[in-house]
Design a protein around this nucleic acid. Sequence first.
DNA 1: TTGCTGCTGCCAGAATCTGACAGTGCTTCG
DNA 2: CGAAGCACTGTCAGATTCTGGCAGCAGCAA
Lengths: 248, 248
Amino acid sequence: MTAPTNSRARERHARYKRPMSRSERLLDLVQTLRRHRLPVSARALASELGVSIRTLYRDIATLQGQGAPIEGEAGLGYVLRPGFMLPPLMFTDEEIEAIVLGSRWVAKQPDNRLSKAAADALAKIAAVLPDDLREDLDASTLLVGPRTGASEGIELAAVRQAIRDEQKLAITYSDAGGSDSERIVWPFALGFFDKVRVMVAWCEMRQDFRHFRTDRIARLDATGLRYPKRRQALLKQWRMTLEDAPQR
Amino acid sequence: MTAPTNSRARERHARYKRPMSRSERLLDLVQTLRRHRLPVSARALASELGVSIRTLYRDIATLQGQGAPIEGEAGLGYVLRPGFMLPPLMFTDEEIEAIVLGSRWVAKQPDNRLSKAAADALAKIAAVLPDDLREDLDASTLLVGPRTGASEGIELAAVRQAIRDEQKLAITYSDAGGSDSERIVWPFALGFFDKVRVMVAWCEMRQDFRHFRTDRIARLDATGLRYPKRRQALLKQWRMTLEDAPQR
DNA sequence: TTGCTGCTGCCAGAATCTGACAGTGCTTCG
DNA sequence: CGAAGCACTGTCAGATTCTGGCAGCAGCAA
């Protein structure tokens, strides 16, 4: 039992080279494509995965057949439209319920792009659920209250994009007192509260962290300029200040 | 191009018999196990999938290796602990963000079982995300507000279970006026609002639909009795009543 | 044009999967 | 207790699939 007579089995057990199964390799391919943002040639991908070019073409075809948004152009290479592949995953019934309920909540948020994304994700999940479970979820035994709170004057998607890209934003903000101000801010987080959404950012004017209710942002323009700190560093720093002083 | 010279390819294209690939079959196996709630013998599963018993044992071993909670007992058969397997799935960045944000919201809800499930689901997803994306999400650029509203005196899990099983509940309820009453209700939905959770049910006492704020349910007992209507029928009927009269 | 690349068909050898048989140990039932 | 049913493992030959190399076509860029 402990000494397999089959030499191939022994090698695999010892993780000799890497007889990486096909399905593993397919996931690896997607990851590899994710890393390179610019087009990559089939030759490069093949050598990175340790397979022949011919096999790589077959793998790409398989992935495309499974719905992966991979695009190939002659003379350039392959690009993966932003996105990513979830491998087979086990969830309990309650975990599925939690994900569905959460996605429904997001779908009711006033952030149009994000709520559409939530609806799309739900549809994708529903499409692969066994019939009985899908019926349960379609029947909506877990409900989310209606949208609440003020609607936005701006597109939250632009804020999320700026956060992802670590770019400065120029905003016109009306504070609680009703007076307007124009500022350059470094956004790094977006908070979803019961009634309002709050953009958390470093404010160049005040030289400090500030919270901006998104429904009070009158105008918002992307500057295209990257701010000089890492988003995560800002977040960490901001959290420190929260612990020192009582919030708000 | 339209006429494959390979006879095997032609058969598959025409969905001739079913040369079902291994990975397809594995997903089928999980689904099949889901359908049977009681233990099923390997022989039965094998014939249902059209493979030999030996192959079925190998498939089971593979699934277990991938984390599927399949349990086999000698003399009985195989059972799948409630749960289910999500096949490989493509999501866009925004869809992943939506799912994560939604799960975070659920994780902050006062329903302990459900919030734990949400946290577990998040952990499972995070475990398979490529490093860069996981960092982004760990860094939490999308935040949810703290738990709000009254905490429950009861376990919401019991309500969800009763809804799933279509079973009557015996409750002690304190209405807005402060007077207590004992009722038998047929719960069929659970609403998550900003500050409160509401159980929607048919009330045997009033012979009508009633909403019960969960923080006002003082006691809750499972009766073990199934109520005589389908959950989905009740839900549909309830929605009709909402459309006729202005809500609340 | 030349050069680079995506993409497809073909084929033989390698790797894997499959089915059948044999055998072990556990559990339940009579 | 014995018998039967079942989960589980090892082995091995044959079927199936995967893989790599070769050839060839098509689109794009310099």
